[in-house]
Design a protein around this nucleic acid. Structure first.
Lengths: 204, 204
DNA sequence: CGAATTCTTGAGCCCGATCAATAGTTGTGG
DNA sequence: CCACAACTATTGATCGGGCTCAAGAATTCG
């Protein structure tokens, strides 16, 4: 099996010395739900996590994927505003007393990183077309996994709900990239980026 | 002239006792630019501020508007990732040493509020249609200004760039709301929400 | 191996973009 | 105060990218 998506390196602990436990979630398990009262922080040990919100008719927007080492689960007013689920099997380090006196700095840094990410993603979803969105997604995954070979932990549906597209459009766009020899597809989860430059040109 | 948008109440200082200065910006003046090195925090005293990013061909996505009392200008890696401009004339309180030992709590809270806002906005832009987006915008403005009468500080172009729509679509949608008697338009800047329930029904 | 699931591909349509013209508003100077 | 220019917003007509509906192919799993 692939040993890529995030499992390759043990991530540095977010808050060394702080009390925490590691919890294992299987694919599609809920980590927390919107509206849940909570005051913990979560760090991905391995696997991928999706954060999302729903509209009443079921439309879903995934606001972020998180991979090994990343911290998520910030809440305002002591309440979660999103759902968090494991995409595939995942291990999560949970800190129950996160924002203690000692480690407000890393907490703030992680929150700011998430903020910048969210706002940058807004530009993609608000102002770029299908090809540009998929290109941005692939480049982001490439950067996070640190190589041109990408193991997609998430389904086409997840990708669509992240990019604000339908699965058909995601699939068609990937096929176009394939026939333009910008990417190579090996099965549906493995993908190699053959022409990074072409992708970069798409999302200036 | 109108005395609504944000000028009505002197906002509480973000970090009481911290050294700061108040700077005045006229309409469309730049507060800071993307890529600028900086380590300050900004609080709107009066007026409205827009944060945005650009694509190389000029497409613009406004990630947030900020009104009186709100704090903005967080940066990661000591660098601004966005542009900030005054929409109309605005007064901004600038804190040069923001994240000092004493006030990391309010800083973190403000950052988390911005994060939640950005991620919620992502749902609007990624998964809602034109009418739903405009409805969400109007409800947001209503809530921030605290009444059914809204003074729009920003142009149709700004609204479009915030919602990921063209100005024509924004204009058409507002006209539809008007003929459906959901809103009343008085001039192009003043707007009264006549049927809050109808708007709420649109963005469940 | 067969069933269930996920993905790909095709055909047609619709919402919002684009292009274009008109109307309204704001600001300036006589 | 009005005349004019410059800008901003509205409205109309047309186009096209991505959605919807539908079928078939590939992959996963029991």
């Amino acid at each position: 099996m692939g040993d890529l998506a995030g499992r390759r390196s043990a991530p540095a602990s977010f808050a060394p010395g702080q009390p925490h436990q590691i919890v294992f979630f299987e694919a599609n398990a809920e980590i927390y739900a919107q509206g849940e009262r909570a005051a913990a922080l979560y760090q991905v040990e391995y696997g991928v996590v999706r954060l999302y919100r729903l509209l009443s008719d079921g439309r879903r927007q995934i606001s972020a994927f998180h991979v090994a080492g990343e911290v998520f689960g910030f809440e305002a007013d002591g309440q979660h505003h999103f759902f968090a689920e494991a995409v595939g099997d995942a291990g999560i380090r949970i800190f129950r007393q996160p924002a203690g006196e000692g480690n407000w700095r890393p907490t703030l840094d992680a929150a700011l990183a998430a903020l910048v990410r969210a706002q940058e993603h807004l530009l993609v979803v608000g102002r770029q077309n299908a090809a540009e969105r998929v290109a941005a997604f692939l480049l982001d995954m490439m950067q996070r996994q640190g190589g041109e070979c990408i193991e997609l932990a998430m389904s086409r549906t997840d990708i669509g709900d992240y990019l604000g597209l339908t699965i058909e459009t995601v699939s068609r766009t990937l096929s176009k990239f394939k026939s333009a020899e910008v990417v190579q597809l090996e099965g549906r989860r493995l993908l190699k980026i053959a022409d990074v430059r072409a992708l970069r040109a798409l999302c200036t």
